[in-house]
Design a protein around this nucleic acid. Structure first.
Length: 777
DNA sequence: CCCGCCTGTCATTCC
DNA sequence: CAGGAATGACAGGCG
């Protein structure tokens, strides 16, 4: 049975996907969570308020858990299955499960690290890069795992608001009103007139019930809605594709810088270049020597960022969240980590002018130098008087592993990003602080902020060299901290939002499960029998599945699922020898006490009587034997007052009264037991779903993280290459290149690039070190 | 015949 | 306190 249920669940999801594919936005979540019965009615068919559909049937269909083996609506089910399998095939072959990772991080309006920053070309680039669409799925979201995709997207703001015009709230309300009117008019008071109406009502209900069963199958799947809306086939692994715009801008600015430098560069003397890149690498300052080029290079990035502590904390939170994911996504992770084209697109995009070959000897490692203040004046006397930056002089400026943004960003990871792991390691180990100056302001501050932020992540273990290590960490320490993902930083905020979305989704399901536990209160408030479809706390599945015994129905409709008379109208139920009354028509049994309507088959009265006898419950028989003058349905479902009133109307013996009370007690208890079991099942299923959701979230977060880190690495490579290009093209008055160990480029706020001695840049970095902190806090 | 599942019922607790 | 909901436990029927 469970497998069948699962099938239907998937089918519903797929159906929803199909709807979204054809442009029908079915924002079921919105409406269902807002507990609007009418919509449920529309989507799922008449509710139990109308026809006392046995909730077991509902559970099988509306719940989306699957189809009940006893369900009579197999036709629909299999048809749906076939169609849905086709849809699924479409999904697999034509719409490879793709996912848009929209990093709102960078657009966070709340002044988070990068979101508030004005977007420069590079910034745009970075954000677009982060938005790249993961290619073919790694199977992480197979089958039901697609769930939550739309949520993710919506959380990321990538999905249009659920205002799409299929059914507006007003529409729903209107429908609701009409629906209620219908109830009032059609199923109203006359129902009380049992003696005259009950049979007809029963038949009517039966018909409606049947109709309902046909209509109700598409219950679940709200979460899967609009899942494909954001799949952007064009962006694909679009990092390169989206990069160009920013690249162009950057390139332009670089050329401008070059021109400016060539025209004005006052520093010509002492220009020395390492013979080859290896030598340069050796000269790269180690991580323990923060003042190194990386720091300087990236310092501008850091000026606008939040305190490193915050960032690190945020990243650690994120990491902790994702670590658990590693197990699941290990393979994909490693793929992403290592397959990522190490800045290929970037390098191409950053190609220099044809006539200006890149000086291979100039590496960013060498370019490290003191922090670059944007307002630093190239021509300040200080600069000219400054001695060539020495490693020793620079070292004290930025302590390794210091919390300063400069150090965190530059020292640790620049090299790691810009160079292959191996090279990186050597560079860090051997590089001296005297190495070159930073790009300073070549990058937009906002972007740099982002980079610095991301750098932390890399530091956390996403250096390619450490990737495997990281994965191990994932395995060992899992996440636990979905909550921690709600950190203030832009990055974390995006994570937080997504996780919150997922948590919201899961929380919705959780709430549904909690609903079960809390159902008693709501139910008691209604004075009814659990799982009313109107229960506000019920979610879609729950509401549908739980509909069981709605008070109104019980009180007004008098439809007892025990009425055997209905069985004659339900030939398909005759084979159900087991007294599984959930599938029986409403008010099945008690009608035996009433004169059968003339419209019913009179020819086979005897047969029918036998049949009914068989179908009658023990209490029915007892009541009959005791000549109880009213139906068990009445006995059970009448409100206490009416029930007492009814009893008072008849002269009943003690035995009769006792039996009646027993019948009432048992009847109520039976319904309670059914509700209880249903609730139990729902709880289990909801928990199951929650687990799946959480697993999905975990996998998604890990994927996002990997993507993010890849983007970061690419951007850092870009920065590196740009710096190299610019610096390598610089020549002093003698036509000799400048020594990266003695000079560094600095990006001024006005967009100009300055070539300054390392020592000076160092001092600048020192000054800048504090500024940002103060500013940001 | 056994087993598992479903259902009804009882006893009990809680609201 | 009564009425009733909730729930665990048990029994019987059925496939």
């Amino acid at each position: 049975m469970l497998s069948l249920k699962k099938y239907l669940t998937e089918g519903l999801l797929q159906f929803t996907i199909l709807l979204s594919l054809i442009g029908v936005r079915v924002d079921v979540d919105t409406y269902l969570t807002s507990q609007l019965p009418p919509l449920r009615e529309i989507i799922l068919g008449p509710s139990s308020a109308y026809t006392q559909t046995q909730f077991h049937n509902l559970r099988n269909t509306l719940d989306g858990y699957g189809i009940h083996p006893k369900s009579i609506d197999l036709d629909n089910y299999f048809t749906a299955r076939r169609l849905l399998s086709q849809v699924r095939a479409l999904d697999r072959f034509q719409v490879p499960t793709t996912e848009v990772n929209a990093w709102l991080v960078h657009r966070d309006p709340e002044g988070s690290v990068s979101g508030s920053q004005p977007s420069s070309g590079l910034t745009l680039e970075s954000s677009s890069g982060l938005q790249d669409v993961t290619g073919p799925d790694n199977g992480v979201r197979e089958s039901e795992t697609e769930q939550g995709f739309s949520e993710d997207l919506e959380d990321l703001g990538a999905v249009a608001p659920p205002v799409s015009g299929d059914l507006t709230k007003e529409d729903i309300d209107l429908i609701d009103i009409l629906w209620r009117q219908d109830i009032d008019l059609g199923a109203g008071r006359e129902i009380f007139d049992y003696s005259h109406r009950q049979k007809e009502q029963d038949v009517d209900k039966e018909l409606r019930d049947g109709a309902e069963q046909e209509d109700t199958w598409p219950g679940e799947g709200a979460e899967a809605l609009a899942r494909n809306l954001l799949v952007d086939g064009e962006t694909g692994e679009s990092f390169p594709a989206q990069v160009p715009g920013g690249e162009d801008q950057t390139a332009l600015s670089l050329e401008e810088c070059l021109r400016l430098l060539e025209a004005t560069c006052p520093f010509g003397e002492n220009a020395e270049f390492p013979a080859d890149i290896s030598s340069i690498t050796e000269a790269v300052p180690s991580e323990s020597e923060p003042p190194g080029l990386q720091n300087n290079l990236l310092s501008p990035l850091l000026t606008g960022t939040e305190s490193p502590f915050d960032l690190e904390q945020q990243w650690q939170d994120l990491m902790s969240i994702m670590e658990m994911q590693a197990m699941e996504v290990n393979t994909s992770t490693s793929e992403i980590l290592y397959d990522a084209p190490p800045g290929d697109p970037l390098s191409t995009n950053y190609s220099l002018a044809p006539n200006t070959p890149i000086n291979q000897n100039v590496s960013l490692h060498q370019a490290s130098l003191g922090g670059c203040s944007q307002d630093f004046s190239l021509f300040s006397p200080e600069v000219e008087s400054l001695p060539v930056a020495g490693s020793s002089t620079l070292l004290p400026l930025v302590p390794s592993n210091s919390t300063s943004l400069n150090s965190t960003f530059g020292s640790t990871n620049l090299a790691g990003l810009f160079f292959p792991p191996q090279l990186n390691g050597t560079a860090n180990d051997t590089a001296g602080p005297e190495l070159p100056d930073p790009l300073g302001g070549l990058l937009d501050e906002a972007m740099l902020d982002e980079i610095s932020l991301m750098d932390l992540a890399i530091e956390e273990g996403f250096n390619p060299v450490q990737a495997s290590q990281l994965e191990e960490e994932f395995d060992s320490d899992s996440g636990l901290s979905l909550d921690s993902s709600h950190s203030p930083s832009s990055l974390s905020s995006s994570e937080g939002s997504s996780s919150s979305s997922s948590s919201s989704s899961s929380s919705s399901s959780s709430s549904s499960s909690s609903t079960s536990s809390t159902a008693s209160s709501s139910f008691s408030e209604e004075g009814a029998v659990g799982y009313s479809s109107d229960s506000e706390t019920l979610d879609l599945e729950e509401a549908e599945g739980a509909v069981g015994y709605q008070p109104e129905y019980s009180k007004f409709c008098r439809m007892s699922y025990q009425d055997p008379a209905q069985l004659s109208c339900l030939p398909y139920l005759e084979h159900v020898g087991h007294n599984h009354t959930y599938n029986m028509a409403p008010s099945a049994l008690d009608s035996a006490d009433l004169p059968p309507p003339s419209t019913l088959k009179k020819g086979s009265k005897e047969k029918q009587a036998d049949f009914l006898d068989k179908q009658m419950s023990r209490d029915e028989h007892r009541a009959r034997a005791m000549k109880i003058p009213f139906t068990n349905d009445k006995i059970i479902n009448l409100p206490v007052e009416e029930f007492n009133e009814l009893l008072s109307k008849y002269q009943l013996s003690e035995a009769q009264l006792s039996l009646i009370r027993d019948i009432r007690r048992r009847g109520k208890n039976k319904m309670a037991a059914q509700n209880c079991r249903k609730r139990k099942l729902d709880t289990i299923l909801n928990l199951e779903r929650d687990v799946e959701d959480l697993q999905r979230d975990k996998a998604r977060l890990l994927r996002e993280k990997v993507e993010f880190l890849r983007s970061l690495r690419q951007m850092k490579q870009k920065v590196q290459s740009l710096y190299q290009e610019v610096f390598g093209r610089l020549r002093d008055e003698n036509g000799r290149p400048y020594s990266p160990s003695q000079y560094a480029l600095q990006y001024a706020g006005d967009g100009s690039v300055l070539l300054i001695p390392r020592t000076l840049a160092d001092q600048q970095a020192r000054r800048q070190e504090r500024k940002p902190k103060d500013r940001r806090k």
